[in-house]
Design a protein around this nucleic acid. Structure first.
Length: 565
RNA sequence: UGGGGUGUAGCCAAGUGGCUAAGGCACCGGGUUUUGAUCCCGGCAUUCGUAGGUUCGAGUCCUACCGCCCCAGCCA
């Protein structure tokens, strides 16, 4: 895979990479420095993967570096367990911050000094208004705000007050430090924004050293500056914040001034992306945790069986822009198929077993048949699968009264057992009361071992199977999309949870798979032929007793025909 | 109604005034195939939110209008 081909036009650059390439060409910086700045208050999801791939990808492509910086300025929400999981997820995705691991909290001392400096140049003041009063003074979208009564405090008084805030002389919420900008600004964020608040909470890194904490807008730009970030990439909702980002750095006359560029966050169909909604799914038991294989969290995707490469490839495919957009879930699904088609060994597994008895096959005889692990990749080798008189096939592969286009088993019809023999259905047994087919009787053609008829007759259908006495019985989770509608949270008046797909996980208990799978290691990815890609669940599998997760089905054009008919 | 963004196919997305508007997903045909998979070939925007204007020439420039998103946390 070529990374990028700047001039050949092989792959057009997104608007951010165009800026970066131009800046590099102009000699603004020898190489870009970016950063991925998560707040450690939750788990990463596919939307974060887009940002990670962008920031770390740019660093890799342009010979720069990307910092991992935790934006931990709100101790009431942040925890160490999140920093650990975020680090693990970034690494799993295939990126490396090397020695550039930072925490905004590492800058608290310097941030405090910058705040005092702002006070000294009369650009910040301590405000005694309550949160509610501040809100009322802020004005509205169309009306200017009004000045705080404390706006004209002397520098000395502000300094003294701010120090007392730091020293714990005032209760939580009683005072804040505000930037002195313009209460009439059309940009509401610029109406004397709060820079520091009093908050007595145990910080996951600084403990109780501080009882005042800087706000995002004050922290982020200065952290970027301190790390010599060249391009500070963030999502669209921070566009207004750029005014304040620039104001802080300009007012403080900092030696460097990173450029903030905003791009559209990722939205996907058939899911929800907000931390709040994901949390709701977990807490209300709709899924079994943050790493539930149906969750589009990085840990959920990992457990489902998605490969890091497929997620990176997905992020490449969707592009970077400034337009609010919804990516089809099928694009993600296609990305794993594409990767796994290349790499996943093929095996046979029957999800819904139906017994087949080959009437003319000698009782007690067992043959070892040769199967390829990947039809297009002989280098993946071969394996042997046992064959005997009694087999399991997929219940869907038999119909008592099949339509003409059904290329599988039915009375009088001949099919090929993959890597086995051609068999013809002679009869079937049925449960009298339910009408359910309980077994199918066939005869085999002994001259067709391996699947080809010496007389050259063509058999259209090939089905998978497992020898009944040799089969390994196991549990398979058939995962599907978590929601039944494209935009579960589109309607604000309807709870998004009413759209949950009740069949998003179907737990199949007695699936029959090839005996060789008894030794499959957790996280192994396989293709069950004609079914889909599956992975060995790392949480539920036991030695010799694997549990499989369906990652994604194979494309199924028969399903379409069936639906249309 | 203030400010900031954004509109190219069903969904993404190239296009940076000049040959017939890239590419991917989805979809529809056809071929190969011991996975109804993969793979391969072909189709899929007389038109770029709308209306005017500038120009020999406009998706690209100008004007107006329309739609959608974000901003009134001591969250990030």
């Amino acid at each position: 895979m070529k990374e990028l081909e700047t001039d050949s036009g092989a792959k057009p650059l997104d608007f951010i990479r165009q800026i970066i390439a131009q800046d590099q060409k102009d000699g603004k910086h020898p190489a870009p420095t970016t950063r991925f700045p998560p707040e450690p208050n939750g788990f990463l999801h596919i939307g974060h993967a887009k940002s990670i791939c962008l920031n770390f990808g740019i660093a890799r492509e342009y010979g720069g570096r990307c910092h991992l910086r935790f934006d931990d300025t709100n101790p009431s929400k942040e925890e160490t367990k999140y920093v650990d999981s975020i680090k693990a997820d970034v690494q799993w995705l295939g990126f490396n911050w090397q020695e550039h691991l930072y925490f905004a909290s590492d800058y608290f001392d310097r941030l405090y000094e910058f705040a005092e400096q702002l006070i000294r140049i009369n650009k910040a003041y301590v405000c005694d208004l309550s949160a509610d009063e501040i809100r009322r003074h802020r004005g509205t979208l169309t009306e200017a705000g009004t000045d705080s009564p404390n706006r004209d405090r002397s520098i000395e008084e502000n300094l003294a007050l701010f120090r007392r805030m730091r020293d714990g002389d005032f209760p939580d919420g009683s005072r804040v430090l505000r930037a002195k900008i313009d209460m009439a600004s059309p940009v509401i964020l610029m109406r004397d924004p709060v820079l520091y608040r009093i908050l007595r909470a145990d910080h996951h890194r600084t403990g109780n050293k501080w009882c005042i904490y800087p706000m995002y807008d004050f922290t982020h730009c200065l952290s970027d500056m301190l790390e010599n970030i060249t391009h500070s990439l963030c999502t669209l909702e921070f566009q207004d914040n750029r005014s304040l980002y620039d104001w802080v750095l300009e007012t403080l006359e900092t030696p460097c001034h990173p450029r903030q560029i905003e791009f559209a966050r990722l939205n996907m169909t058939y899911t929800v992306m907000s931390k709040r909604k994901l949390l709701q799914l977990v807490e209300e038991g709709f899924v079994e945790g943050w790493d539930d294989p149906r969750m589009l969290t990085i840990s959920g995707l990992r457990r489902r069986g998605y490969t890091p490469k497929s997620i990176r490839s997905f992020c490449e495919q969707i592009g970077i822009g400034k337009k609010e957009s919804w990516i089809d879930m099928s694009v993600l699904e296609n990305a794993v198929r594409e990767d796994l088609n290349e790499t996943a060994p093929r095996v046979m597994g029957v999800l819904d077993p139906l017994k087949v008895i080959i009437d003319n096959y000698p009782e007690g005889l067992v043959e070892e048949l040769v199967a390829q692990n990947h039809p297009q990749k002989p280098e993946l080798g071969i394996r042997s699968v046992p064959f005997s008189r009694e087999l399991y096939i997929e219940r869907d592969d038999f119909m008592a009264e099949p339509p003409r286009k059904f290329f599988r088993l039915g009375p009088g019809r001949e099919v090929r057992l993959r890597y086995g023999y051609l068999i013809t259905c002679v009869s079937f047994d049925q449960d009298e009361s339910s009408g359910m087919v309980t077994a199918v009787h066939c005869t085999y053609d002994p001259d067709t071992k391996g699947g080809n008829a010496p007389d050259g007759r063509k058999v259209k259908g090939t089905i998978h199977w497992v020898s009944a006495p040799h089969a390994l019985s196991c549990t398979v989770n058939l995962y599907d999309r978590l929601f039944t509608v494209e935009h579960p949270d589109a309607d604000k008046d309807v709870d998004f949870k009413v759209h949950i797909n009740r069949d998003s996980r179907i737990k199949k208990e007695n699936c029959m798979v090839e005996p060789s799978l008894a030794g499959a290691e957790p996280a192994t990815r396989l293709q069950f032929e004609r079914q889909g890609y599956f992975s060995v669940d790392s949480a539920q599998s036991l030695p010799g007793k694997p549990v499989f997760n369906r990652i994604v089905t194979l494309r199924d054009s028969w399903a379409k025909i069936e639906k249309g008919a």
